[in-house]
Write a protein that binds this DNA or RNA. Structure first.
Lengths: 184, 184, 184, 184
DNA sequence: GATGAATGAGCTTTCATTCAT
DNA sequence: CATGAATGAAAGCTCATTCAT
């Protein structure tokens, strides 16, 4: 089992981080041990601790990556509102998006909350992420309270992940429309 | 060291559960081991496994208790709306309430989400809790979408625990008022 | 391999301590790991940490035992000087004693010095031991400087363990006689 | 971080050895790893193993240096006895000398004993050192038993490092005077 | 019923050493 | 020459769980 040659493995570091996120999503931060990750990434155990001397270095790097990945599509979309479309619709679709990715994001989000409540550097990571998310919201929807929209969207997403049938696209749309005035 | 007499400890079971919740709040589900709890509750290690044969029995019992405790004030309050007061105000105060208890509840909530995403019986526990919370909301605010209100309130509470200054009482009030029509 | 039944192993604790001293003598404090000791004592690894939660607990217990064992023969000998014999002779024999035991004692002594220079509780253990040794010396040889005799005897013993031929019985006797006036 | 330029580091080898001795004094042979030393000496890890292929090469070189350093002042002092001074006094001062250096020497001595008891090449190193020390003693104090004086001085030094108040200058002087006849 | 003792499994981390560049 | 990257081995320690008493 394993790749033919492990020597000179460029971006091994990046692969370890990506794998870590997968393992956390699948088995929780608690289940993401050096061993489980090293097996999943097909990397020797000694290599893990070489690149990430402590487990927290690794977990933190993984969540840094998570917040970047999660944010970038939202950020790079358009620089300004799209004239042709109701910009509120993009938020609706974000909450309602289905599939593995969405569920995975919610799982990782909950894990990150747990860490943030316990250790300040994770709390700070979340705050940075929130600030960036708010900036993106403001760019799309000037004039609304971005903190509120962000929080509401997250609350809906979290609940929806447990009881999807109660948070249909329609419900989500009505909620967001009640909070955001229609564009001129 | 310890209590003078451990014999005849009537509600030891209940005390273990309460202590477990404390330990989870303080150190996470991960840090709530038989040992840490037995020390915190001043109960012999062997007694722990006697009352709760597996660790999950204990953790689950603790979260059952948590959802009951958290819900009861809201539930037992008044059976119907209070004529003298805007019923929306009670929700505002719930989100905005400060102090240890609120923070503790958010921490435990996040821990419970993590478990719910991983194991079905925790997911089911959360759903039951949500259903009860919605019933209480409906009782106070007939005609509103209780699922939405519950989700929004939770989203606000979670964000507020990380960035309190951005979710003032006023912000919360305005958000809820936008979603709930004023009582007649 | 091993004993037929490990359950109910009375004085397992004592056996672990004795084995630890053996392993330290054979392979140094550094080589006395939970694993090497558990194998030498035919005790499961988990049992080691049950009885001695930290490695230092174990090493310290071993050296406590060492200082007691080393001291007791000297202590319990006679309550007062023996009229028939020159009491200085006993000291000479202690230094000159041959065989595994003596070498082992010197090895353990050196290991203990290393610990004492680094951690106060070992330093204090050595001081207690020295005090008891001095008391025994004073009992046998009233009027002499017990601290000096103790130090000299140790210096001779240490050097003798490396270059035995240069510290014959005669050399040792002459040295001690020069420091201790002949009994009346 | 570190020195501005590591290039062209002439006596890097010597600096590594000196640093190794410092690290051993501070943290023991056990704590003197390639890593701790490379950091303390601000030398790349790869450079350590280049100059000293095995850890023992390094430790042994350090103790060779130690025995030379410790000996040289005694050796190079005067070629013969100083007419003006009681030569015994120099020994007294050596034992009684205070300060970091003395303590450090005792620590390193104990560490060296531990190695000497375990591996022959360290034992031989100590014997060579002892022979040189004896020659120096004989040069200063012709006619005395240098092995005895050396051993006694060491015993006093070792005990003094643990219980300084019991080995005052006076006690040490009296002891040595009892063993060494006054010069003519 | 209650509990101290016991233990196998597994975790994080450190380390000496090797080697491609 | 010099060195960063790599890695197998082993260390200290924690823990859920079992079980004899």
């Amino acid at each position: 089992m394993g790749s033919t040659s492990r020597r000179s493995d460029p971006d091994r570091r990046a692969r370890i981080i990506a794998t870590t996120l997968d393992v956390i999503a699948a088995r929780g931060v608690h289940g993401a041990t050096y061993r489980t990750i090293s097996e999943a990434a097909d990397v020797p155990l000694g290599s893990m601790t070489y690149h990430f001397p402590s487990r927290d270095d690794l977990v933190f790097a993984a969540f840094e990556r998570f917040t970047e990945d999660l944010f970038s599509p939202l950020d790079t979309s358009t620089t300004g509102p799209d004239a042709d479309e109701d910009p509120r619709e993009r938020l609706v679709q974000m909450v309602v998006a289905d599939g593995r990715d969405r569920q995975r994001d919610m799982v990782l989000l909950a894990e990150l909350y747990v860490l943030a409540f316990r250790e300040e550097h994770y709390a700070e990571l979340m705050r940075q992420w929130m600030r960036r998310a708010r900036a993106a919201i403001t760019r799309q929807l000037p004039g609304v309270s971005a903190p509120v929209i962000d929080a509401v969207q997250e609350g809906l997403g979290l609940h929806r992940s447990l009881m999807p049938e109660d948070y249909t696209e329609d419900v989500v749309r009505r909620t967001l429309h009640a909070l955001i005035p229609a564009p001129a």
